[in-house]
Amino acid sequence: MSRARRSNDWGFPRWRGYESTREAAQVRLCDRHGCTEPGKCPAPKSPNSPDRWYFCEKHAAEYNSKWDYFEGLSKEEAASRAGREQRENAGYAESAHYGWGGSGDGSRSQDEMRALEVLELEGDADFEAIKREWRARAKKVHPDVKPGDKEAAEEFQKLQLAYEVLKSAEERRTWKG
């Protein structure tokens, strides 16, 4: 007489051994031709389209670096859409100073990046470098150094405004409140 083998799950199927009756899981591969990595990152095929590509992380980063959100729009349409989205997302922009980030990690606003361009500095410049560059440039075009020169006065105003933008951003970042 053969005896029936007893189960170890005691009537609870979850107690069975892992992977005992698991079927093969389907994995979607990256949509980039020739890539065999799993495609976990959805990316839009075109603006305002529900269709998506599915890329691996490497190819998603490559695709996004070339993505133009305003492709196919005229300059006026692109400017109006950018303005509308900036107004609608104002709360998010105002909360940016709560981030931990310092300079160079993507935490700089468009205004800060434009101010850095005026001073001809890189996006990851620290505040000491900003202050040094501002002083050096301001000394060359200061109205006391070049009295009556309208171009120098305009340049000095640009430098002053850029410095004020960067200074207030630095104060927001370092404020411990």
Rank of each mutant, 00 (worst) to 15 (best):
M1R: 05
M1W: 04
S2I: 12
S2Y: 06
R3A: 14
A4K: 12
R5V: 15
S7K: 13
F12W: 02
P13R: 03
G17M: 05
G17V: 05
S20I: 12
T21R: 13
T21C: 10
T21V: 05
T21G: 07
R22W: 07
A24I: 07
A24F: 10
Q26Y: 15
V27Y: 13
R32W: 03
G34N: 01
C35I: 00
C35F: 00
T36Y: 00
E37A: 15
E37K: 04
E37H: 11
K40P: 06
C41I: 10
P42M: 09
A43F: 07
A43R: 05
P44I: 10
K45Q: 09
K45I: 10
K45L: 12
N48R: 04
N48S: 14
S49E: 09
D51G: 09
W53V: 06
W53C: 15
F55V: 04
C56Q: 04
E57W: 09
K58S: 08
K58F: 03
A60Y: 11
A60N: 07
E62W: 05
E62P: 07
Y63A: 10
N64P: 03
N64Q: 09
K66A: 08
W67F: 14
D68H: 01
D68A: 01
Y69C: 00
Y69S: 01
S74K: 11
S74Y: 09
S74P: 05
E76Y: 07
A78Q: 01
A78S: 07
S80A: 11
S80V: 08
S80N: 13
E88K: 04
N89S: 08
N89W: 01
G91Q: 06
Y92F: 08
Y92T: 07
A93P: 00
A93R: 07
A93V: 04
H97Y: 11
H97G: 03
Y98C: 03
G101A: 11
G102Y: 08
G106N: 05
S107K: 11
S107P: 06
R108I: 10
S109H: 07
S109E: 04
Q110V: 10
E112R: 08
M113S: 10
A115E: 09
L116D: 05
E117Q: 12
E117T: 08
E120P: 02
L121Y: 13
E122Q: 15
D124K: 15
D126H: 13
F127S: 12
E128L: 10
A129S: 14
A129E: 15
I130S: 03
K131C: 04
K131Q: 12
R132C: 02
R132G: 02
A136V: 15
A136C: 03
K139C: 00
K139R: 09
V141E: 01
H142F: 00
H142P: 00
P143R: 02
E151F: 02
E151D: 05
E151P: 01
A152R: 01
A153V: 00
L159H: 11
Q160R: 14
L161E: 12
A162D: 09
A162I: 05
Y163G: 03
L166D: 04
L166Q: 04
A169K: 06
E170D: 06
E171D: 11
R172G: 15
K176A: 08
K176Y: 05
K176T: 09
G177T: 13
G177I: 06
